[in-house]
């Protein structure tokens, strides 16, 4: 499998009056063609910032300190704005967190999709582009008659589908879906996720799902990355993450979710709250909340290492952790 996106040691800080907010602090991962990756973490852990950094849509006070983002071999961070505009949507498109407000209220929904097509493929005529939108509407399960309606005439679920159609409009190689279903009710949520997963497999696209909800991610992603306080703490395929979670934070996340199948377990909550990322120290950021933290954890930053094939983790004690966890659960 060929890698399509490689993120290497990406560091992105927000500079504020009070100092640097270390929103994304040295994360690395690889996404292969046709693969889907889920990024999970609490709000404010840097998931959205990561996706915005990939799209180069960062706020003015955001600074990329180091790292590379290779998309199909090209470093996105070295492109100028015009070159980047060509990558946007045609190469990587995006489904946004707040679908409700992601469409411009004063233009027809269809026209907003056509606009994207015509911008990236100047040779396509308006009629051809419209035809493509009709097909996309069918693909995402929307009535093509709705093309000439305005966003305020759509329901929430319909808007989300329209946005998915829009994200597919330029045949991108990769889609980033940032909390694609958070604003929707559970039934619509499930439908949309299945739809997205189906389309992704059908078109053999790469996909990054971002969510705070590990259950949602588990449904659609082949690989899962767990983020905590601006760092990627664990990354592996979803089976491994669920079967053999190695980072204490992942374990905490797992046990704070009720399992529908399997035996009854008591839910364990993670004590404390995520650290303030403003001038965060260079130690393990989970250490203050970690029941297994040692002196080493509070002083040094744990390395991000492969502990078994395709299973990365940033923790000093991955090996003896299992045992301790079991003891902790008992006592």
């Amino acid at each position: 499998m060929k890698p399509i996106l490689e993120v290497e040691n990406l560091k992105m800080y927000y500079s504020t009056k009070l100092g640097y907010v270390k929103a994304v602090d040295g994360i690395s991962f690889v996404l292969n063609e046709g693969e889907s990756l889920g990024l999970v973490g609490e709000s404010g852990c840097g998931k959205t910032t990561t996706s915005m950094a990939i799209m180069r849509l960062l706020a003015e006070n955001a600074e990329i300190l180091s790292g590379h983002i290779y998309f199909k071999g090209k470093d996105l961070l070295k492109l100028n704005n015009e070159e980047m505009n060509k990558v946007r949507w045609a190469g990587i498109s995006m489904i946004f967190q707040a679908a409700m407000n992601s469409l411009n209220p004063v233009y027809k929904v269809g026209d907003q999709i056509i606009e994207a097509i015509i911008t990236h493929e100047p040779n396509v005529t308006f009629e051809e582009a419209r035809e493509r939108v009709v097909n996309l509407y069918k693909l995402v399960g929307l009535d093509p008659k709705r093309i000439d309606n305005y966003p305020h005439e759509y329901s929430g679920g319909m808007k989300q589908r329209a946005i998915i159609a829009m994200s597919l409009s330029c045949n991108p190689d990769m889609i980033i879906a940032d909390e694609p279903t958070t604003a929707l009710d559970v039934i619509v949520q499930d439908m949309i996720l299945k739809e997205m997963s189906r389309i992704q497999k059908k078109l053999n696209m790469s996909m990054i799902y971002i969510s705070h909800d590990i259950a949602v991610i588990a449904e659609v992603a082949e690989k899962i990355g767990i983020m905590y306080a601006g760092k990627l703490v664990e990354l592996s395929d979803s089976v491994t993450i669920f079967k053999r979670p190695a980072h204490p934070y992942t374990i905490g996340l797992m046990s704070s979710f009720p399992s529908v199948k399997g035996e009854k377990k008591e839910l364990v909550t993670i004590p404390g709250e995520p650290p303030n990322l403003l001038n965060a120290p260079d130690s393990c950021r989970f250490a203050p909340r970690c029941p297994f933290a040692t002196k080493e954890c509070l002083e040094k930053e744990p390395p991000y290492e492969e502990i078994e094939p395709n299973h990365f983790i940033a923790c000093f004690h991955p090996q003896n952790l299992r045992k301790q966890v079991n003891e902790y659960a008992k006592g």
Binding site: N81, E82, R88, Q97, S102
Partner: peptide, 17 residues
Amino acid sequence: KEDFITTARAKGLPDKV
């Protein structure tokens, strides 16, 4: 600050547009 501006940027539209 609205989301649809981010969308428009993400669509790769030129700054002026």
